[in-house]
Design a binder for these strands. Structure first.
Lengths: 224, 224
DNA sequence: CCGCGGCGTTAGGGAACCGTGAGGACCTGT
DNA sequence: ACAGGTCCTCACGGTTCCCTAACGCCGCGG
């Protein structure tokens, strides 16, 4: 169970990390809004705990950015207890709001309550191109109605390209997102899996229409 | 949007009814735990707001009874602000906990946040596939009319897969849902219990038709 | 014309993963 | 103490997946 904590107070970060790690959660931390967003995109946490009063992007802006992209549960932790603040955060897409100071037990219980809800709730976009549809939440790929089997690596690669649709994705980005941060230079496997994706998804694999190559740079998925 | 409010304080009931009705909710009220359960069974509300300190059945008991039967969002309203009370209610199955006094705006925002999470009406209490029927609420599995005995672990595993029907459920999700958040990597028991479920439920266990494997990723239940 | 670099594709060995049987640890009620 | 049941570990064969190596294609510049 991966959990992302964003707070600009190092002491709070440390306390939360210790508490949550002790309970078996896999904790990642960020100390400003931009770092929080980056981390969310990179590690796909199962739940996000975020402080409102951060420098750079505010917590509200982070929540809105997240919601443009995913339905991960977001729990807000804030020093502000005015009802207006709560309304703003909840309506921006947060799922729960706890005011400081709070007890660790309560936070843990609220995290449990939120993660209980997750599996049934995801409502991610379905991407369509040609006669192919991809349901990112359900991990389902169909082509002309028939289901298409993808291996884990093929799926991760497709996922990264789809989440960055119409944008160029560099080889380096693809490698680190799909194979891990220690992989930065291609020795052939990127080309290999791209080829397999095309074989499974493109109407004419030898003349790609959706999964395009940008020579010397990387790849780009275009939906039409 | 139907909403059920349970509170033994007539004044609170009246205030909430007015506030919520004015926002367009279809409000039903109950003034003790038994009446709340009856009303929930009768009208199938989309969300339940419940006070903990009621005569007869306590709020906690009502939540537990509801959870044996449905996944409706439950928001607890209580005069008690001890973290222990919150933990108890949330772990009993409540989704949110607000302490009195609270502002109407905050309550409304929390109700909106909860109803946003409500999955579509896909929460079928009874699932059938092949000659097998599974009653999620009653914990009953039958095959060709005869009852099938499942161990607690087998049941939890089946439940998670059924509640996510047609979607891929990752190994990690299954492990944390069935065995707890500290279990994230399989050392063999997941495969073992899947095998046992297939033996009990699949027409031909060696060629699974409903409980499918996605190598390297997880499992998926498909109803046909 | 020809070498060269980047890309696409195929094939095969090795590693990781999966299904399943056997058996031991533990818990519970008799 | 014993029996029945549940949970988990271990091990083995079969399957799937991943990556390396090698080759052909194409465009470009020498």
């Amino acid at each position: 169970m991966k959990i992302l904590i964003a707070d600009d107070d190092p002491q709070m970060l440390r306390a939360l990390r210790i508490t949550l790690t002790a309970r078996g959660y896999d904790v990642t931390t960020a100390s400003d809004g931009t770092a929080a967003l980056d981390a969310a995109i990179r590690i796909h946490p199962d739940i996000v705990v975020i402080d409102l009063g951060m420098p750079g992007l505010t917590g509200i802006e982070v929540i809105e950015a997240l919601r443009g992209w995913t339905q991960i549960p977001v729990l807000v932790v804030s020093g502000r207890s005015e009802s207006w603040d709560k309304v703003e955060a909840l309506d921006a897409g947060a799922d729960d709001y706890v005011t400081k100071p709070f007890s660790a037990d309560e936070l843990l219980a609220r995290i449990r309550a939120l993660s209980r809800r997750t599996p049934a709730a995801s409502n991610e976009p379905v991407v369509t191109f040609g006669d192919v549809t991809v349901d990112l939440a359900a991990h389902v790929v169909t082509r002309a109605g028939a289901s298409v089997r993808l291996t884990p690596t093929e799926w991760r690669l497709l996922e990264v390209l789809l989440r960055n649709h119409d944008r160029l994705v560099t080889r380096e980005t693809l490698l680190t997102e799909v194979w891990g941060p220690q992989y930065t230079t291609d020795t052939g496997y990127l080309r290999l899996y791209l080829s397999q994706l095309r074989k499974k998804l493109e109407p004419e694999p030898s003349v790609p229409r959706y999964l395009l190559t940008e020579a010397g740079m990387g790849y780009r998925f275009v939906s039409q």
